[in-house]
């Protein structure tokens, strides 16, 4: 894998840090007029999702991380692993619980999502920003209520629970923003 010097640091660059793959969020070059130059970097650990701040001496090099994002189709869960496939090549990957994390609650079989691979192994799964899912369970709504005030919990076909307006019924298909977990509209 390539190595990168601090002057190549920029948002999105994937590097290895303490044996974990990380993604640079923000890089700040700190250089006093007289004195040592540093790079202060905000980094996301791609394994844990945690964001940390680290400092490098300018000119130092770090090892790059072999991290790529690929669009994949979610196939099924066999009880232990979640299985995904690259639509073009039919290559299949199996991901563990800690890789799919919370994302899986937004995915139904056949949906397309983004899989992040580290050294060709699943690292994390990102759902589309918006998903369209059917409501399987919610309290009966009040007829005629079309406002956004109030709301009630609704369980979706994937198991996710979102707050929806009172007029939305079981069997309705709704659009949800996966980044905020919020109801957007009926689909």
């Amino acid at each position: 894998m390539a190595t990168y010097s601090t002057n190549e640091f920029k948002g999105g660059l994937k590097i290895m840090l303490d044996n974990d793959p990380c993604s640079i969020i923000e890089n700040e070059f700190v250089k006093p007029g007289k004195g040592q130059a540093f790079n202060r970097v905000r980094i996301r650990n791609l394994k844990t999702g945690r964001v940390i701040e680290r400092t490098f001496k300018s000119g130092d090099t770090v090892e790059g991380a072999d991290v790529v994002d690929r669009d994949m189709q979610y196939l099924y869960n066999d009880g232990e692993f979640w299985h995904f496939m690259v639509p073009d090549t039919f290559e299949q990957y199996q991901a563990e619980k800690n890789a799919v994390g919370d994302t899986i609650k937004w995915l139904k079989e056949q949906d397309i999502c983004t899989m992040t691979l580290w050294n060709d192994s699943p690292l994390s799964v990102t759902p589309p920003n918006f998903v369209v899912l059917t409501i399987t369970e919610t309290d009966p709504g009040l007829k005629g209520d079309t406002s956004g005030g109030g709301g009630k919990p609704a369980t979706l076909e994937t198991g996710a629970v979102v707050r929806v307006p009172l007029f939305v019924q079981i069997g309705d298909v709704i659009k949800v923003d996966t980044r905020s977990g919020e109801y957007v509209s009926r689909a």
């Binding site: 700190v30 006093p32 004195g35 040592q36 540093f38 202060r40 680290r54 400092t55």
Partner: peptide, 22 residues
């Protein structure tokens, strides 16, 4: 600032640069 000691070691001037800027 967990990197400070590794980067600065026994170099007093570098420690001062580090702590001044950070």
């Amino acid at each position: 600032l967990v990197d400070a000691d590794r980067l600065c070691g026994d170099d007093h001037a570098r420690w001062l640069d580090f702590l001044f800027s950070h």
